[in-house]
Nucleic acid binder design. Structure first.
Lengths: 232, 232
DNA sequence: TTACTTCGAGAGCACCGCTCTTGTTTTGGG
DNA sequence: CCCAAAACAAGAGCGGTGCTCTCGAAGTAA
């Protein structure tokens, strides 16, 4: 299906990739606010208007970078889980490994992290294309909890009467087979994990938390406890 | 001390306030990215260069808005706690009331929330002036936990050996008299609370969480449990 | 070869943050 | 009271931005 038809299409693919690469370089270096189409075009030796043949607007370019960032952090999480699994880790250890991997990715790619988990900068709502890659990290956590649940090693967290099962509705393929209590606790833990990382990254822990790595490890483990993963 | 010296100073104060008000209006309407000095000046019937007599740069204006936003959300939290206290609420109920107030403020002021708890947009590090107002919400939670601790109604959360007491170092006036376990759990809970609100506000709960109010109430109560506040 | 599509380049529009200069107004001390 | 000093509004201008339009060159398909 990926038969390269001619020089034209091949060139288009290459130029598109070059634009994205240069844009990602600038994003990593200066942040999303400083990323300009004109600067990217200048660096690539083309004129700014030519760039619009490949991306219809600056926001579209940013969206492409957002998708790449989601894929990048998602891959980091999946690889960390796979490594832990290979090492015969228990669910709670896998949870910790993935948390650490997510934090490490965020510290390594602060501007890309801010792009996806900070304020949504381009216009407002995320396009449909982003939801797939965006859920890779979440799915990794779900797999871990599902494994624990299948192995009967999951302590059900309490669910108050006020929270109806429908309140936490998951996309069909991922709620499958998990009790509502677990999905609710899982989603909350996931949001809280990002809150911890965001606070550290955005400077809210300045003059408050000293040893941030140790603090994060502890907090992540508490989150694992909260979703019912038994201590090792 | 606030003796108004002359018409000149009075005018300066008024114009400065008018600029901030108009800027806040635009921030609330369109977001920080769309806020422009020229548009503010235009709306106020002055020329853009005149505005630089009052704010040396766009970032300085944004910083002023950030401080106001911190004060606004801080006041909302304090008032909610005061109301709960007047109603004779237990610490855990006060905690819930403040959480709800913070979330309500965020939903009412999404762009201002994004400005202070989303990606740090102006340059990078927050100036010193912001740390005072920024800690008002956190101090509210500290007061609640301190009250519970003084009343012997606080269950100490576990602190693993890996997390030394120095790891969570607080500014002197607010760690005072609280065990390290509690401060650590408190800071984590505070970060996690912001994570929950950010996920809801930034669209990460789309197609995932249905009844967000009930979900938040439940999660906030779990956080209260995590810091050791006893159930009512 | 011919008709069609795609592309790069350039000019241009409206907007932005910010600086500098030029008069005018207000202030405060001699 | 008057006058120098300070604060001010206004305008022009610089370099930058996102984006549009047109035009000629180059690749594609008949």
């Amino acid at each position: 299906m990926s038969t390269v038809r001619g020089a034209r299409e091949r060139a288009r693919i290459e130029v598109t990739a070059a634009i994205k690469d240069e844009a990602r370089r600038m994003l990593a270096a200066e942040g999303a606010a400083k990323l300009s189409l004109r600067a990217v075009a200048r660096e690539l030796g083309m004129v700014s208007s030519a760039l619009y043949r490949y991306f219809p607007s600056r926001d579209e370019l940013l969206t492409a970078l957002i998708i790449d960032a989601y894929d990048s952090i998602g891959a980091a999480a999946e690889q960390a889980d796979a490594r832990a699994l290979d090492a015969g880790a228990a669910p709670r250890e896998r949870w910790g490994a993935v948390c650490e991997a997510v934090r490490a990715w965020a510290l390594d790619h602060p501007h890309e992290y801010a792009l996806i988990y900070g304020s949504p900068v381009p216009g407002y709502s995320a396009p449909m294309d982003t939801v797939g890659p965006a859920s890779r990290v979440g799915n990794t956590f779900i797999n871990i909890v599902r494994a624990a649940h299948a192995g009967r090693g999951l302590a059900l967290p309490p669910l108050p009467a006020v929270l109806r099962p429908e309140a936490v509705r998951m996309t069909a393929d991922f709620a499958e087979g998990l009790p509502a209590e677990v999905t609710a606790a899982l989603v909350a833990a996931w949001a809280q994990l990002i809150g911890l990382i965001s606070f550290e990254l955005f400077g809210q822990f300045n003059r408050v938390v000293e040893d941030r790595a140790a603090f994060f490890t502890h907090a992540a483990d508490q989150l694992a406890h909260g979703v019912g993963l038994p201590a090792v």
